[in-house]
Design a protein around this nucleic acid. Structure first.
Lengths: 255, 255
DNA sequence: CTTGACCCTGACGTAACGTAAGACTTTACG
DNA sequence: CGTAAAGTCTTACGTTACGTCAGGGTCAAG
């Protein structure tokens, strides 16, 4: 099998040339992915230049994320549609990167919480809870993006600063608490208090849409598409609260 | 343990609320990461709201890439320096993302090769070899970037178009072949042929530096720093060829 | 009382090697 | 030439975060 005029390599030197360990070569050998083209009498693996070409291909394909099985198929010519295969692989990796981007953003947000004066001197567990909450918030709303067009997202990004976001979030939280309390207390939706709450509710929505009717439209679409919401998504207010505000807003408009 | 006034959940409903499977809950149970706070007589796991808070935290931390062991430590308060932990985790993820970016770019390059007219009608294996080569090229030169400043890289990116890159690459390949041949033939470095080769060599280098002395400087630094080159990097020409060109350039300058 | 629909506990499978363990071979040195 | 260091071999378990049966109870409805 071996041409006596060719230089041959033993495992570690051979692997070193491609940056892989001897163990890796053993692994590829057993998988049938790369069999050494020779052995010494005592059983040492011997690799030649052609083996090296193959190893290089393996390393390359591994780099772009193919699993070893598929690499074997590719190298053995069992997979034909190279363009499709590459496109598919790219999709997979791009999806992974998107996830990493979200994770990085999440950590940055968490670091922002840690850095803020508000959390200084607070007990650890409380800060921790806050961090989890912040990350979940991002998580919980990320899927909403798919309802918007590129331009709308760009628009939003400009206006929707982290600071504004945080303030709005606090505003929503307090407002929702008050609304839930009013519902629980059986406040009449026509009452002055209810009208005030509905007014604040509208204001907050407007501060998000920024007067953009397209974005406002989308907000309604998102709400209407409840059956496609992720199962882990939790509405921040009860159905009763929503109904209460709906009624109050209705009556407010009539006046 | 369980408060009788609290609502309790069985495995699948509980898991569903957080988007995890029953098997996952079993797993977390065995790891001691999340033990159900109760069991029925028959052994069914029963989870309460407090369990859910913990599950949420687990899912969140998992999202930002922490391994389960570390999550356990974090939730059990065994890890203190939260800022450092987060920064470290971010570094790790950012590094992963960089890898993915490189892989995506590599695939795009490969797709470019496939799309080019030049590879139409060529046998599959040849196209394949070309693709591997292109990706390796990127791989082999990526590490060089760390020698350049941000601005220099930006500069390079502007001038160094893919087309120019490909042409230059071909030019280098032919030139190097000729030089190696000259060395093998024992051509005198003072000869006209050698001088011509050295001239073309200089031209190619200039086409890369674009007259920017900073970039030219860096090129020398890179070359001088050989001991820090990655082990898998292969010089495109022999030491002899390099010496030959060096001598020829020297003599050329003297004239 | 019989279905489904759930739940339980093992226990093996996955991907790509890392890391010994125990036993040769080869190579370098004195 | 003997010995010790360095390299290699096979075998086999460890890693990560669950997925996927297999075999067998449990629970609510009809």
């Amino acid at each position: 099998m071996m041409n006596s005029t060719q230089t041959v390599y033993r495992a570690s030197e051979f692997g070193g040339r491609a940056g892989v360990t001897v163990r890796t070569l053993h692994h590829y050998d057993r998988l049938g992915l790369l069999k050494p083209s020779g052995r010494t009498e005592s059983g040492y693996r011997l690799y030649c230049e052609r083996d090296f070409a193959r190893l290089e291909q393996i390393v390359t394909l591994k780099f772009i994320g193919f699993p070893l099985k598929q690499i074997k198929d590719l190298l053995d010519g069992k997979a034909f549609d190279l363009p499709t295969t590459l496109r598919l692989q790219r999709r997979i990796i791009e999806e992974k990167r998107r996830h990493l981007d979200l994770a990085i953003q999440a950590i940055k947000n968490a670091e922002g919480v840690l850095a803020s004066r508000a959390t200084r001197r607070k007990p650890d567990w409380e800060v921790f809870r806050k961090i989890i909450e912040v990350i979940n918030m991002q998580q919980n709303w990320d899927w909403v993006n798919k309802y918007y067009t590129e331009e709308q997202l760009a628009q939003l990004k400009k206006r929707w600063s982290p600071e504004l976001q945080e303030k709005t979030q606090r505003d929503w939280a307090t407002l929702i608490q008050e609304v839930e309390a009013a519902v629980a207390a059986g406040v009449d939706s026509a009452s002055e208090h209810a009208q005030a709450l509905a007014g604040r509710w509208q204001k907050l929505i407007e501060s998000f849409t920024g007067g953009d009717s397209g974005i406002a439209q989308n907000l309604k679409k998102v709400y209407a598409d409840q059956r496609n919401w992720p199962s882990t998504f939790k509405k921040p207010y009860s159905d009763e609260a929503r109904a209460f505000i709906g009624k109050a807003t209705e009556q407010r408009r009539k006046l």
